[in-house]
Each structure stands twice: as structure tokens, then as C-alpha cells.
């Protein structure tokens, strides 16, 4: 428990995937608290996953990455392991969804989290195309887009988010971001000391969207978990200037062409 929860302090999640056991207690707790009935069950044929993806009904999603390689001829060298990770909205410091939202429905709260105001959103879905993590989903019943609120209502009541409270291994830790950063640094040092050279922090520093409010300790490259690398973590606004310049170039050329075609050519103009 992170102690007293105070507005004005930046809170977030540190998800340590090295100790995730894939129990999905986080998914259940999230659905229970936020009254998300979930999508109709279906067989996905994707390891132990039957949630599929983050969307309007799934605000936590446990990913299962199978690392099964057969042993080499003659024995030895095979690997049988899962990588498991409880995925969630990253509550980006530089949030792409906020950048493109035309209504101002997406705001940063007093806890420095990213929240979609359900009474302001009109369901244009522009944020869905902007979110680089595929987090946001459209909900037909409400006519709005939805995602993890980092249990905004619970924070206001001084309670930690439901998923963090339910996690039996403390893979999901909630708290002030500066404290979580220290904890993550110490954990990474331990893992590196134990020989886990591929362990790394994702979103701990500003290279990924200015730092993530929900950051991760990963046991492999981000792409393995369906996360963009730091090089690919780009904001949609990067295309504003080149996009408008392209439109300007097209406008100038089209107007020039129009003027050439529609100019006077030694003909008497028709009078008005």
C-alpha cells in the first residue's frame, strides 16, 4: 500500500513481468471494480490468452509469449518458458491520444494520469488511431471510447487501483512514480546481477513518450511483448507540419494548373 494518496503527486504502475504468473487476477479485479462485463468468450488459439487485446471491455490484459524451442539433436539447448505481462494503458507523459482529441475529453488528472471524460467524449475515435499501444476501444453501448482510468474513482477515495491490490505476486505495483522508479532500478540491478542480461526497464525514462505513468520491467525486447521500441515510439503530431506542407504543395500546384487552364486566351469574356 503506497500510503496516503494525495492530489498533485504523480502516481502510476510499475509492472515487473519477471514475477508475473499469468493468473489474470488483475483482469478480474479490473472488470469487477469497473463493471466491465467483458467480450463474449471465444477460443483465440493464442497460448493461454482468451482476452485477446486491450479494448473498451478489457482494461488489463495478460499477454502470454511462448518461448518453446525444441532441444537440439542429441539433447540440450531447448527452452520451455513463458513470458507473461499484464498490459494496461501506459498513461504516457506525452499522450498521443490527448494530442489528437478534438473535444478535449482526454485530460490529465490531479494524479498525473490520463483520463477520458465519458460525459465529454463524443465517440469520434480519433484517439484510437493515435494510441501507439492499441489501448483504447470504442464501446457501442455508451457511444464513447474507453480505457483504464488508473481507478480514478478509487484514487479520489484514497484507495489503490483494483488490479494492483489484487495482484498476488506484486508484479503490479502502484505508488508515487518517483518511489516506483527507485524500486524498479533496484530490481533491475538484482536481475542483472543474477545473470538476466536481457532484463530492461521500458518507459522508466523519457525515451518512450516522455516517460510512462505505467512502466514495465521486461525480460526481452519490447517488440516481443507487442510494444514499440524507443525508436518507434513517435507521436502523431510529428506529421502535422509535413502533412500540411504536402497539402500546401498540392494546393499551389493545383491552383497553378487551374489558372493555366482557366486563363483568358484572346477571347472576349462573357459578360455577367
Amino acid at each position: 500500500m503506497p500510503g496516503r494518496i494525495s492530489p498533485g503527486t504523480a502516481y502510476g504502475f510499475f509492472t515487473d513481468t519477471s514475477i508475473c504468473i499469468g493468473c489474470k487476477a488483475c483482469e478480474v479485479a479490473c472488470k469487477e471494480w469497473n463493471q466491465l462485463p467483458g467480450n463474449a468468450p471465444r477460443f483465440l488459439g493464442d497460448s493461454l490468452d482468451n482476452t485477446g487485446q486491450l479494448d473498451a471491455m478489457n482494461w488489463r490484459h495478460v499477454r502470454f509469449v511462448e518461448r518453446f524451442t525444441p532441444p537440439a539433436p542429441g539433447g540440450g539447448g531447448g527452452q520451455q518458458a513463458f513470458l507473461m505481462m499484464s498490459d494496461v494503458c501506459k498513461h504516457c507523459n506525452q499522450a498521443s491520444c490527448m494530442d489528437v482529441c478534438p473535444t478535449g475529453a482526454i485530460i490529465r488528472t490531479e494524479f498525473d494520469t490520463v483520463l477520458i471524460q465519458q460525459d465529454v467524449c463524443n465517440g469520434c475515435r480519433n484517439c484510437i488511431s493515435a494510441c501507439p499501444f492499441g489501448v483504447i476501444g470504442f464501446h457501442g453501448d455508451t457511444g464513447t471510447v474507453r480505457k483504464c482510468t488508473l481507478c480514478y474513482d478509487r484514487l479520489q477515495a484514497g484507495m489503490q487501483p483494483a488490479c494492483a491490490q489484487a495482484c498476488p505476486t506484486q508484479s503490479i505495483q502502484f505508488g508515487p512514480l518517483d518511489q516506483l522508479h527507485q524500486r524498479a532500478d533496484a530490481r533491475l540491478a538484482t536481475l542483472h546481477g543474477d545473470g538476466h542480461d536481457q532484463a530492461r526497464l521500458y518507459g522508466r525514462d523519457s525515451r518512450v513518450y516522455g516517460g510512462l505513468g505505467a512502466f514495465f520491467l521486461l525480460m526481452d525486447r519490447p517488440e516481443t511483448y507487442g510494444l514499440p521500441s524507443a525508436a518507434s515510439a513517435v507521436r502523431p503530431g510529428r506529421n502535422n507540419a509535413p502533412g500540411y506542407l504536402g497539402a500546401l504543395l498540392g494546393s499551389v500546384l493545383a491552383v497553378l494548373g487551374g489558372l493555366i487552364a482557366l486563363r483568358r486566351r484572346n477571347e472576349s469574356p462573357e459578360t455577367r
Binding site: 487485446q53 475515435r125 484510437i128 488511431s129 501507439p132 499501444f133 492499441g134 483504447i136 476501444g137 470504442f138
Partner: peptide, 9 residues
Amino acid sequence: EHFAVSPDW
């Protein structure tokens, strides 16, 4: 790399 989902426009 792209991990964004469709806005269903």
C-alpha cells in the same frame, strides 16, 4: 512498427 488498432472509420 505499428501497434495501433483500427478506429473503424
